[in-house]
Design a protein around this nucleic acid. Sequence first.
DNA 1: TAAAAGATCCGCT
DNA 2: GCGGATCTTTTAA
Length: 202
Amino acid sequence: MDKYELLTDNFFKRETLKTAKDLLGKVLVKNNGKKGILSGKIVETEAYIGEHDPACHAFQKTSGRSSVLYEEGGTIYVYFIYGNYYCFNVVTEKKGTGSAVLIRAVEPLEGIGQMKLNRPGIKSIHDLTNGPSKMCMAFGIGREFNNTRLSAKGIFISEPLGEEKLKIAVSKRIGIVKGAELPYRFFIKDNPYVTKHKFNKI
DNA sequence: TAAAAGATCCGCT
DNA sequence: GCGGATCTTTTAA
């Protein structure tokens, strides 16, 4: 574990768009104890900005599940969607803002064997984690992580393990209806682990 | 209490 | 590239 260099809380307390962009290239790590380490490089994110963003769960009211969005930056927000799937977010900015960054895709680094076990039927390594819910399934992330701090239950985000030049691209967000025209999606250009979508061509 | 929508995935064409 | 599956959460009456 010594090789990891954890991001500080202050990283997540900055402006949401900057945080989303800067998360590209960072490493998402899940420590499963005796089962080993799962990790992946973040290659795709989306920003959801509180009360100014129609697509954000915090846009309408501060009730129910969205209350987690108003916690302090660095809190994990996991929610259930379409009856089957989880999405993993990290809350940003200061307490009461209602903003978060959705992790949409990662590039598997460690524990690929375990990820394959978590994703039965998937053959290509490129399909293990190229989607918000795929990533959660591969990492075994469920609602037990909702409303917990990073590092509290073995999930954390680290600085990159090596130097790398990132080609960052921006597009509209994917899969939403309201606020879909806003350019709040960030991804690493030409990375094969980014979700396949027509917006990748700009 | 009931109804509708949704930050998706997967298989089929 | 398109549409169905599936059920939690939210909102309204």
